[in-house]
Write a protein that binds this DNA or RNA. Sequence first.
DNA 1: AATGAATGAGGGTTCATTCAT
DNA 2: CATGAATGAACCCTCATTCAT
Lengths: 222, 222, 222, 222
Amino acid sequence: MCSVKGTIDRRGAILAAAGKVFHAHGYAATTMEAVAAEAGVAKGSLYNYFRNKQDLFTQLFAEITAGDEAETDQLVAEDILADEKLQKLIDNVFAQLERYTAIGGLVLEFWATAARQTSASSVEPQHQGELAEMFEQMFSRWRRQTGAIVTQGIESGLFRAEIDPEVAASLIVAVVDGIIVHSILDVGADFGPHSLAALKRGLLAALSAWADTKDQLDRGEL
Amino acid sequence: MCSVKGTIDRRGAILAAAGKVFHAHGYAATTMEAVAAEAGVAKGSLYNYFRNKQDLFTQLFAEITAGDEAETDQLVAEDILADEKLQKLIDNVFAQLERYTAIGGLVLEFWATAARQTSASSVEPQHQGELAEMFEQMFSRWRRQTGAIVTQGIESGLFRAEIDPEVAASLIVAVVDGIIVHSILDVGADFGPHSLAALKRGLLAALSAWADTKDQLDRGEL
Amino acid sequence: MCSVKGTIDRRGAILAAAGKVFHAHGYAATTMEAVAAEAGVAKGSLYNYFRNKQDLFTQLFAEITAGDEAETDQLVAEDILADEKLQKLIDNVFAQLERYTAIGGLVLEFWATAARQTSASSVEPQHQGELAEMFEQMFSRWRRQTGAIVTQGIESGLFRAEIDPEVAASLIVAVVDGIIVHSILDVGADFGPHSLAALKRGLLAALSAWADTKDQLDRGEL
Amino acid sequence: MCSVKGTIDRRGAILAAAGKVFHAHGYAATTMEAVAAEAGVAKGSLYNYFRNKQDLFTQLFAEITAGDEAETDQLVAEDILADEKLQKLIDNVFAQLERYTAIGGLVLEFWATAARQTSASSVEPQHQGELAEMFEQMFSRWRRQTGAIVTQGIESGLFRAEIDPEVAASLIVAVVDGIIVHSILDVGADFGPHSLAALKRGLLAALSAWADTKDQLDRGEL
DNA sequence: AATGAATGAGGGTTCATTCAT
DNA sequence: CATGAATGAACCCTCATTCAT
């Protein structure tokens, strides 16, 4: 409405381009020129929307992860059994495996490099902190939400009472992230529907109170 | 014998320095100058031992992972029960978590960037191939060894017969690597002895034939 | 017209600077920094106009030799006697001796080194091929044009019929280039107007049919 | 006698190796390491025999040209006709064309680069002067000897009296060097026996007193 | 806002030369 | 004399960032 002719969403276009290029080449090997070319704008224009390369990356990350929190919070609040919730949670992740893989590579790389730096570099530490904080938040939210589901399961008697929800959440998140990482690394492991089912079965087996689980098994539901 | 004092292990010193600097700054942000400084040698000296930066990295990786295969193969061949073997395997990994963490960041970064690419970069593809192959081998060995243990467990009736050893191995490796990654990223999750025990318990619960597991649980062994 | 003042010809300035510096120091001893300094631009700016050092050199060569072909072709086509044509051709060369001397050193050096090689060097063979091809073309054009004049002379009865135009052209070009080389090397030989006249006289004596030449000699024209 | 076992001529071996490598790669692209490898000695050993790279090159040049002077002086002193002498001189050069080609490339390159330098370079100018002087001497000797033959020819009435021996010598040397250069550059010109004969014929035609030459032509000797 | 030429610090790598053994 | 590891100056080239238009 306010954008009449060619006033396309430049910022969006740049972010989209950045997503492609960062994913294709990694952070270090991505040049601002390549992003500009992919976005169809001039190199200098990037700096009208983003302070610098790191800022571009940070905002890209924010863009990609935006919306995840709300979605998952909604799932946590749904009125279904905890085991089903957990399965849905996992299904959701794997349904978006591609997206997570895309961003995952960047997270890994970025963390593996700049974010860990203590000294060095002419990059202003401020920006790094921004990204580090975003990472931290993403993971802690992820654990918190998973922990909530586990707690629900324990409270409803579905999961074994002696389970520590925090520990369980950490481990569950670790499995899922491990799979994502293996997918990113494309390391030979195959995570098709078969593996996915096995994963869910295994997780529930580990979490479930025996009777219930056994019943489910008997009913052939797992 | 005649070379005790003066014959310093320059190559070793450089590798050690490279390990530190790579770990601290990541691959891209590590300068050969920094490595040289850390090693206490001149920049040019690095090239007496390593063809280039990539070669230094590759050989560092080889150095760090050397010995792992034999050690684990030995474990696989031991004459103990599969569940105990699996626990030992995991214990081994976590006992060396620090070492894996050190190299892990580099693996992640490297894979997340250069290794995924076929085009780009002026780096000779040969070296990337070398490293890629080493990665591939490391992971596939890791899965193979884990799978062997799972198979042993199934054959001895300890683990449920319907388990696909390959799938199980992939998932187990994924959990473990997920934890390593989380450790690398230092993302807020705590993987102390408590979590470790829970992990082992959960894994065995997911793998075990019910009766046996239940017995063990009854005996309070898990 | 609207760009009179500010629109400096950066590329031209760099080429001019490169000409000076290459000529003064030779290819190998010329640093991009020196060229940049001479041109009054930053080091990095060179790479906005030329892909690399070789490309700069190649384009410099192309720039210098541009226009020669057309000019000489025109001479060949003129409606004057072959012996006069030949003399004009030589006069032209020597009138531009300075320019040929400037570029000649580079040609010699380049050919004497990199261009002879197929292996070695990290330089992309493509560029060398480019330059090698330009050299080849320059020399073959040179011979072709000279050969055409000789043929004209033979056909008109001015030159001896038993002369092989190709051989004669090769030799004539060799003399001229030999003189250029000696000038480049500044090796003590003096090629003033006196020598030039002697050269032309000698050449025509060697080429001419006896009767005519003798007549000319008798008339004191040579 | 004084060299019993392995005391081979190290210096000679190095020079031979240097000749090969310099010829193959040119001065700039030749590394001391490559020379050492070719010679089968350690890099450091080169510096026991030669002060530095330039010195090695200079001494190589001296070695190669040694003996030429005496040989040609002998020819000049022989008791044969001047035209035959000239032909022999040329024959000699072309009989050794390969050797001259080998050294020629280096002369050209060296002159084209280091020797012309006025400022710059950390190389001590002293060495350059040495080489420059050697070049100068080689060419001036070459002209002097040729001039002597021309003078003999004039005095004996074989060559035209009005010829300036110095100019003629300069031109003759220029032709010959031109051909050498073209051979070095391998520029498409073919200088087989046919061309060689034509060259000699042409030269004598240009030099010769008419009657004599005509007689020779009539006798079919040219 | 958009552009893209200009910048220049910095990185990886080479190699002539030295010197301790 | 022989060796070859060590050195470090220097080079080519990249690319994030700026700024005049």
